[in-house]
Amino acid sequence: MLEDSFVYSEYLLRKRLEYFLTTNKLNRNEIKEFIEFIRKESNVVIFGGMLRDLSLSDNKLFRSDIDLVVDSINQRELYKLIKKYNPIMNKFGGFRILLNKWKLDIWSLSNTWAINEGLVIGDNFTDLLKTSFFTWDAIIYEIPTKKFKYYDNYFKDLNSGFIDINLRSNPNPIGITIRTLRMLFMNKCKISFELLNYIIPYLKKMRPEDIVSFENKSFEKKILNKEKIELINKYIHEHVHSYIYEPFGLPELEPRLPWNFQSIKNANIA
Results as ranks from 00 to 15, higher is better:
2 L>W: 07
4 D>W: 12
6 F>S: 05
7 V>I: 15
13 L>D: 01
14 R>F: 09
15 K>D: 10
18 E>D: 12
22 T>H: 14
22 T>L: 11
24 N>T: 14
24 N>H: 12
25 K>E: 15
26 L>G: 08
27 N>C: 10
35 I>A: 06
38 I>F: 08
42 S>W: 06
53 D>S: 07
57 S>D: 13
58 D>F: 07
63 R>E: 04
65 D>G: 04
68 L>H: 04
72 S>E: 15
76 R>L: 14
78 L>W: 11
83 K>R: 14
87 P>Q: 09
87 P>I: 10
89 M>D: 10
90 N>I: 06
90 N>P: 11
90 N>E: 04
93 G>M: 05
94 G>C: 06
100 N>C: 06
109 L>R: 08
113 W>S: 00
114 A>P: 04
120 V>D: 04
122 G>K: 03
134 F>P: 00
135 T>E: 02
136 W>R: 10
140 I>V: 10
148 F>N: 00
150 Y>D: 00
151 Y>C: 04
160 S>G: 07
162 F>G: 01
163 I>S: 02
172 N>K: 10
173 P>N: 11
185 F>R: 01
187 N>G: 11
189 C>E: 03
203 L>R: 03
205 K>P: 02
213 S>N: 14
213 S>R: 14
221 K>A: 04
221 K>I: 11
221 K>T: 06
222 K>N: 07
222 K>C: 02
231 L>P: 01
232 I>T: 07
234 K>C: 10
235 Y>V: 06
236 I>S: 05
236 I>N: 03
237 H>F: 15
239 H>M: 09
240 V>F: 08
243 Y>W: 10
244 I>T: 12
245 Y>F: 14
245 Y>G: 10
246 E>G: 07
250 L>A: 08
256 R>C: 05
257 L>F: 15
257 L>K: 15
263 S>I: 13
264 I>F: 12
267 A>H: 05
267 A>N: 07
268 N>R: 14
268 N>C: 12
268 N>A: 08
